[in-house]
Design a protein around this nucleic acid. Structure first.
Lengths: 209, 209
DNA sequence: GTATTTTTATACAATCCCGCACAAAAATGG
DNA sequence: CCATTTTTGTGCGGGATTGTATAAAAATAC
């Protein structure tokens, strides 16, 4: 990688291209996205993408790693606020919901949880990145809970991460934001031991279909 | 649909073909599975599949509906055993793990949670089936918890369903069965109020990667 | 026993997708 | 001011996938 090359400098920001490619991957998945789709999404020609990132699979993995790093930063920043246990967990879950509803015009959930899970079954590299992402979530959330005085940070950290996984799937299924926030609040009070069980306004409407 | 046709009867069991097609879809997802793959998986020629089920998307949706019906039966049968709350939730979660590890030689998770979520973002029909599946889970699990005397069946029912979603994703990521069972036990005791928190043997190994 | 109806299997045409090769453009180093 | 190097955009060929059309096979009704 030329630190300061001699030829023509590239006219695009690689990280921004990665972000745009990730948006498209998030909607269509790895197998469902063509190079033409990615070219359209990023505004770059096919050969430019190939030269910068390799083939489609490598580009997909790069978007996963970019998102993993960003989520980890997000979790670390959350720890600097010194919140007590209950509000911390609620903030953790509602912050996830914010991410799942961000970006496109309709809720799409998480790129990794919702699309890498599909590719993981037939692609060991993708499976390893999915595993690494979840391990990072478990580790960072466990750390946050421990710092906030949780009586069982490891077990409860994995349960909080599990709630995030479901919130992503539910967002993708079209559940409205308020319903997800209610679920997040119920889960937060259960895990934090703050027993206003179903106080946050438990799901009144269950059915969708 | 000829109840008893006059011509040649079909030489295959449609439900079994649906099951085999679902196995392949579970591994590769909708976009990642070709008609040749499905022909190989079911042992039927392409035109036979087309005549019986329509195009690839219709076949995929049919496998989703088949699985939805089977899971609902499974949940209803579980209610006939009259288990107390704690063991009921644990049985619910471990039963899910059993399904996620069944079938292929390596854990694959749930067809709907792990692959329909990908397709849902760009296919309204699939999204509707995903939503219907989750709504069914929430409804049936809520019913089970209510019958077992849960103090907050709706809120806790959705949380139990959420744990199933994460267990499916985690199975797909390659987490070993014992680790998932530990997570299931921790979640069950938290939700049931049986406070042997982290007593089931909380996750000692968190990292993977 | 024959005709009819439905399923099965092979083959074909159209489309899409991928990767690579080629020529033009832009900016630095001498 | 010129040459070199890297990026950019267009175009082409190979391969795969989808959907359908056509002929053979099988079983029931008459």
């Amino acid at each position: 990688m030329p630190v300061r090359g001699r030829g023509r400098p590239r006219s695009f920001d690689p990280d921004e291209a990665l972000r745009l490619a990730g948006e498209r991957f998030r909607t269509q998945g790895l197998a469902g996205t063509s190079l033409d789709d990615l070219s359209e999404a990023t505004g770059l020609a096919r050969p430019s993408l190939a030269a910068a990132f390799g083939d489609k699979r490598a580009l997909y993995i790069a978007t996963i790693e970019r998102l993993t790093a960003r989520v980890e930063e997000h979790l670390l920043r959350l720890g600097e606020r010194g919140l007590p246990l209950g509000p911390l967990i609620e903030r953790l879950l509602v912050g996830g919901i914010d991410l799942y509803f961000a970006g496109a015009d309709q809720p799409e959930g998480c790129l990794i949880i919702n699309t890498a899970a599909t590719a993981a079954a037939s692609d060991d590299e993708v499976r390893a990145r999915l595993s690494a992402f979840i391990a990072m979530q478990d580790r960072r959330i466990t750390g946050l809970l421990a710092a906030a005085g949780s009586p069982a940070p490891e077990a409860h950290g994995r349960i909080v991460a599990a709630m995030l996984h479901s919130l992503s799937v539910r967002a993708r299924a079209g559940e409205p934001r308020e319903v997800l926030v209610d679920l997040a609040k119920d889960a937060a009070s259960l895990i934090a031991g703050t027993n206003s069980s179903s106080g946050g306004g438990a799901a009144k409407l269950v059915g969708g279909a």
